[in-house]
């Protein structure tokens, strides 16, 4: 079938050529006849000759579109290697683009500005992507084993640093927003004592998220990303080390300044000890109230009196006094 078609195609231009050559033979004969019959005019006044032949504009032959010569199984990635505006002579697809009234065909791909406007992905065909990815795969490295889940990688790499890159179509690659650095880590990954933890939370303020137990530092005051990162790490270090400093005036904290009730420094401990050591003599080891009792008293006062806390308090008191 295909061979038959090609034969027809070959025949057609041949026929045309033959027809053209016949005409040419005929037209060559004609001027001779005209020359004989031409009548010479007596030119008294030197009037410009009216029958001046118009100069033929010589046009260079326009080559047919490249798509005619393209093989069916050509390497398309070589024909269209890089991003480029659409060119109809290079794309062997019968594309049409444009809105028309009902019934009319959309404008064809030749001299169609709409197709030139829209960004095309002709250089990113699936084979091209595969080919390029295979070429750049040697620069990639696999994710290390043993860090598959989030829990695992958070055990070894608790600090998260978030940075952002911006890419826009501008003559400059700088973007002011790119300087911003966010550092976050879980508070449980840092080692604290009770006083240091309290002070650290006071220092960081609302940068601590109670629900997720994370501390987040966002820095953007320096012009460069590196500087902001260093500054965020400095903040973290400074807060951590500062939280272990105990100022001399902290010892003078009175009971009225306490935010929470502590069993250790309150009257109830002395009272409980008094009851437990009722019959003890001087020099004997003092019996201190059990930690479970201390905890339940703290809970009762800090959380308020509810049914559960009261019941637990009752249990503990009974247990302590061996009732």
């Amino acid at each position: 079938m295909s061979t038959g078609l090609t034969r027809v195609w070959e025949r057609l231009p041949l026929k045309k050529q033959a027809a053209q050559s016949g005409i040419r033979v005929f037209s060559q004969q004609q001027p001779e006849i005209e020359d004989e019959e031409e009548f010479r005019v007596l030119n008294l006044r030197t009037v410009k000759q009216q029958f001046q032949r118009r100069r033929e504009v010589r046009r260079d032959p326009v080559t047919p579109p490249r798509t005619n010569r393209m093989a069916v199984d050509q390497d398309w990635t070589a024909a269209w290697p890089a991003p480029r505006s659409f060119h109809p002579a290079s794309v062997p697809l019968p594309l049409r683009q444009g809105f028309t009234e009902r019934g009319a065909a959309a404008p064809s791909k030749f001299a169609n500005a709409e197709l030139m406007k829209i960004p095309n992905f002709l250089h990113l065909t699936p084979p091209a992507i595969r080919q390029q990815c295979e070429a750049i795969k040697k620069f990639c490295s696999p994710w290390p084993k043993g860090l598959e889940t989030e829990a695992k990688w958070q055990r070894h790499f608790p600090v998260e640093v978030i940075t952002t890159d911006y890419l826009q179509s501008l003559p400059t690659i700088r973007n002011l927003e790119a300087r911003r650095v966010t550092i976050s880590l879980k508070l449980s990954d840092l080692k604290f004592d009770a006083h240091a933890r309290d002070k650290f939370l006071r220092l960081v303020g609302d940068r601590y998220n109670k629900d997720t137990d994370t501390v987040t530092f966002v820095t953007d005051r320096c012009p460069l990303r590196k500087q902001n990162y260093d500054y965020a790490m400095y903040l973290l270090t400074a807060c951590y080390h500062e939280s272990f400093v105990t100022e001399p005036w902290e010892a003078s904290k009175s009971e009225a300044d306490m935010e929470v009730y502590l069993f250790e420094r309150n009257q109830s401990k002395i009272a409980a000890e008094g009851i437990l050591n009722w019959s003890a003599k001087e020099g004997d080891n003092k019996i201190s109230p059990p930690p479970a009792y201390a905890q339940c008293v703290e809970q009762l006062i800090n959380e308020g009196e509810n049914e559960y806390n009261l019941a637990k308090y009752k249990e503990e008191v009974k247990k302590m006094l061996n009732v």
Binding site: V159, L185, M233, T237
Partner: peptide, 13 residues
């Protein structure tokens, strides 16, 4: 326009 946020994992210093 493209904007890429990267979350880097680091050890505690």
């Amino acid at each position: 326009a493209l904007q890429a946020s990267k979350t880097e994992l680091q050890q505690i210093p």
